[in-house]
Design a protein around this nucleic acid. Structure first.
Lengths: 340, 340
DNA sequence: TAACCATACTCTAACGTTTGCGTAAAAAAG
DNA sequence: CTTTTTTACGCAAACGTTAGAGTATGGTTA
């Protein structure tokens, strides 16, 4: 790469000082019309642009926000990133995305690298491994220095910072209520392992709804899916079990789509024999047959909220106590539960 | 945010010079065991980490690569980013992602911001608007300075740099051949408008296959879908036209899934009455009913290749002439074309 | 006791930028 | 013709870091 043109080189060219060049390019009245003109022409010709690193170092401000997500090939996370990016751009910030890949170690190293001056603030959705370890020292370390931090979706209540979450309990509650309303009695839950916060919260909403409707909770209808094993085989168990459900609530889109597939393979009619609802984030629910009723998570809105909290925190216009924004999901009713 | 601890502060604390502190932390033999010890203990206690901006400025190297994609809520692009990130991490680089949002202006401003010192090299997939304008001055500007640049997927041949593309012609050729082999005679093509390179290349592969099989090309079977209009309505036309096809090749997953849906609504059996193939990038094809046969694009591999070319270019281990890597897609046969 | 050497530092420049302050020369005012 | 003001610049410090060159102190050697 050719070395870029700098103030120093321009200064040398005209035999003036660096500050003269700097001021000339800023149209300072301290510099004569004539000098300004020739310096600007020269700078323009050589396409001078101030070096960002130097500016950031001097201004002690990067106008970059760092985002660490567990993965990016995931409709929900990429939608949130999209929301973050849109809002950040409006407020004059750029976005640097890093992936923790669900790994504790990578989350730590990403955080360490980003907080060493590269960004003005950090947005994180916690890695699965970290949630499993319950090791949050890396968060505490930056919080101690008042480093601006916002957590979203995968959060931990012990970490003291701004947070944005989906009302998972409410979403699962709404979804389960809907199933009860259409007459389901034996509602299976396809959820994640307990340490995934969203999974356990959605389970709470499911139980809350059953309690409200005076339906007893059957632990045999609750399936904790392990993402590291074969999903298809695990979900098949729901249908081979003697304890057969007449409805399924899945905590994500993939579980729901697989359940739908397996149900059809088992000769079941949807929604007559079995109704299915998933939490969605992507486009799958829309294109299955029948399309899946689902809890929509508003990832884009979430991204905007997260970015807003962070930038307000960076620019010191936030209230001093930390905020927790809860986004209400809504139920999108499609033909997997109601066939009109 | 509390000001971070710096060498200067540590130096002041012990009444030594900044360079003494720097050397002590680097375990230099120039500094006495005793001084080293207390400085390191102090630095450790206050969690000293060198400021990245300062290092980057001094070393004239950021170890960050910039990525500009048209959108991120798109399985193909996020998969490529994933590949880039994985490979970059292995080689000690971080990734900064920006979105052009298909806008020329935003692409230009993102490039300008990233090339002013923030990153060591740039990976770009060109925005739709830029391809439409054919205005590539912003690329020429950075190429003139030998700024490391790699284009992928949405490229332009006039831009002189390393490139990675999918063999779109080959992919469409394979897919069309498959349709011909299963007996299709009237194969419709759902493609994009002409200025999208991938759309027009896939059209070429489609035509090449028809020519090979001595099937005449019927322009009435080629539908150019406008992404800004209602997709569903546009695709409906394929089925209401008198010129009905017995197979459909769609240049992306969404077009294919919608075609499948409309076909079923029209009472057509798949694949008996009409076979459907899409180019895929996401998970939709897998969960439709029947699952869609599709051309798989290997986004992850593409990301790795792109990152490798770029980092080799940055580290000056590339051959001086520019490379063009072509990735062959493969045909994943599912039940939308072959029902066994 | 002068010359030499090792030790343990400090100084300085460099990366690229901005900005308040100082100042020489020219112009205006008295 | 002196004093003041204006013009048009240069200087230096600051952001945080590194690394080669320079130096004061003390001890060893001839």
């Amino acid at each position: 790469m050719k070395p870029r043109i700098t103030l120093k080189k321009i200064a040398r060219e005209f035999g003036v000082s660096i500050s003269t060049v700097s001021k000339a390019l800023k149209d300072s009245h301290e510099i004569s019309e004539e000098t300004r003109g020739k310096i600007k022409a020269f700078a323009d010709y050589y396409n001078y642009k101030p070096n960002n690193l130097a500016l950031q170092l001097r201004n002690q401000k990067t106008s970059v926000i760092g985002v660490i997500v567990p993965e990016i090939v995931h409709h929900f996370f990429s939608t949130v990133i999209n929301g973050i990016e849109k809002y950040a751009t409006e407020r004059g910030y750029n976005v640097m995305v890093c992936l923790s890949n669900e790994s504790y170690e990578k989350e730590v190293s990403n955080m360490s690298m980003l907080t060493n001056g590269s960004v003005d603030g950090l947005i994180v959705s916690i890695a699965r491994e970290t949630l499993q370890n319950q090791n949050f020292k890396h968060f505490e370390a930056i919080i101690k220095d008042d480093f601006p931090l916002v957590l979203f979706d995968r959060i931990n209540d012990d970490i003291e910072c701004d947070k944005v979450i989906i009302d998972d309990i409410g979403g699962a509650f709404k979804a389960t209520n809907h199933l009860v309303e259409i007459g389901s009695k034996r509602i299976a839950l396809l959820t994640t392992q307990d340490f995934i916060t969203v999974g356990s919260l959605r389970k709470k909403g499911y139980i809350k709804s059953l309690n409200k409707s005076k339906i007893s909770v059957d632990e045999g209808l609750i399936y904790k899916i392990d993402d590291n094993l074969d999903l298809y085989e695990q979900i098949k168990n729901v249908f081979t079990s003697k304890n057969t459900p007449d409805a399924i609530l899945a905590v994500n889109e993939i579980y729901a789509a697989i359940a739908l597939k397996v149900a059809k393979e088992s000769g079941l009619k949807i929604p007559e024999d079995i109704a299915i609802i998933g939490f969605t984030s992507g486009l799958i629910s829309e294109y299955t047959d029948p399309p899946l009723t689902c809890v929509e998570q508003h990832g884009f809105l979430m991204g905007k909220q997260v970015a807003e909290l962070l930038i307000n925190r960076i620019e010191n216009v936030s209230p001093s106590e930390f905020q927790k924004v809860v986004i209400s999901p809504n139920l999108k009713i499609r033909k997997s539960t109601l066939d009109d």
